[in-house]
Design a protein around this nucleic acid. Structure first.
Lengths: 233, 233
DNA sequence: CTGCCATATAACTAACTAGATAATTATTTC
DNA sequence: GAAATAATTATCTAGTTAGTTATATGGCAG
């Protein structure tokens, strides 16, 4: 049965259907600036998250987005500007979601617990933000600093926590004298580290840390640590 | 006064004195394999830590080490092998120091506190390990996995913590039912995150987080969080 | 003193990669 | 339905970078 194998040699190269071609088949417009930009952003997020800014390849991004490389430059100007766009989108989305928690409306202890759960669950669902942040920190936050959009996003979450802590103190349910910034850092840290260092930790402990079971245990543990820290006794 | 400026044009190129030249002046041997290797490793650690594997430049490493680039290949084979050597040295040193803490010899609560302090202080003194770990995690721990030396280094620290917790439970000073692995992760996390994400956090909060004062506060906070979690009540 | 070789240097190259050029085609506008 | 515009493609290029080649020399064994 040589037929099957020879077909590989004789058949014309099968070009994988382009995004435009697929769109046509679906009766969507062949040319769609918005769709192409989103496809590029999404592909770029995956590439930058897994390889970092220096390790990422613009050719790979274009290919993964089913777009011509020229479109990347057409819409984003340069590799670095594309990276910045990815960063702004991912980081901005996280901050936005965070803001919408409306912690001030909850009972103080419930508000703290909600924040711990949110942080953990957001990282679970959006692990690329971890990689992007890690890469950004490796470069001294060069791009975060450069971004007007992100600099202006200076969170007021610490102020929210401050009010929550004050309310809790007043009701006698939260320890006195807690520092809201350090508390926020610790809440972030407990969740972040587990995801950011899962790869090396899994090797160090010879154990798959990211399994669903381990993750649920870790989630409960994080809540436990923070709640036992903030609760008045 | 044109003299000073023209000298730039007429003077022969000033070669910066090579490592060998300096050694000669000091009456040290001009050729020293060990010294060259260490210089390369040290320069590489700085370069890999600040730029990551992909962003690092072998030419920069050689130059910073006052060595010829060829020596890098002579002693380490390739950029990746040099990176692995850096990783093994830095990671190995941390694990080695950790092992020497002899936590089992301390009172249970004192042992936990010592570990928290150690982690925080080690990161303070060796911030490049943070960057190396961050880079390694971005690549899914590809190199850590590849390293026979590091894989064999599987820490027994969790077992030590397990024994410390058991002893503390027996004496009634430590909460019952704590999970040693999650405790170790949390202790690491509280210190690590503060350093690994200092750059982006400083932008997000418009505040220099790494100042000595902030760092000391953070250190106390970390101790406080962990001790209030583990202490029986 | 001399011959050897580990250590070191400088100059080169092949491959890669971000970005540019220029021509082409779909969609919109009037 | 023609002209204008926006989106897209294939191909090229200049600069960079990991790794190599060829050559030189300091220091030690004998």
């Amino acid at each position: 049965m040589v037929v099957a194998t020879t077909s590989k040699l004789t058949a014309p190269k099968l070009k994988k259907p382009s995004l435009a071609a697929k769109a046509k088949a679906r009766l969507e417009p062949v040319r769609d600036a918005e769709r192409t930009q989103q496809a590029l952003l999404t592909a770029a997020e995956a590439e930058f998250a897994s390889k970092g800014l220096a390790g990422a390849r613009v050719d790979v991004i274009a290919e993964q987005a089913d777009a011509n490389k020229r479109m990347l430059y057409y819409y984003f100007g340069s590799k670095e500007d594309l990276y910045l766009a990815v960063l702004e989108r991912a980081y901005g989305a996280m901050r936005e979601t965070e803001r919408n928690l409306n912690l001030a409306d909850l009972e103080p202890l419930e508000a703290i617990k909600t924040l711990v759960e949110f942080k953990f669950d957001y990282y679970t669902a959006h692990q690329s933000i971890i990689s992007l942040l890690a890469g950004e920190n490796l470069s001294g936050a060069a791009f975060l600093k450069r971004s007007r959009k992100l600099r202006e996003m200076q969170t007021s979450l610490v102020d929210v926590i401050r009010r929550v802590l004050a309310a809790g103190e007043g009701k006698g349910v939260i320890r006195k004298g807690l520092d809201p910034l350090n508390l926020y850092l610790s809440i972030s840290a407990l969740g972040y580290f587990y995801f950011s260092n899962a790869a090396t930790l899994s090797v160090a402990f010879g154990r798959q840390l990211l399994s669903e079971e381990e993750r649920n245990q870790r989630r409960e543990h994080c809540i436990d640590v923070i709640m036992s820290y903030v609760t008045a006794r």
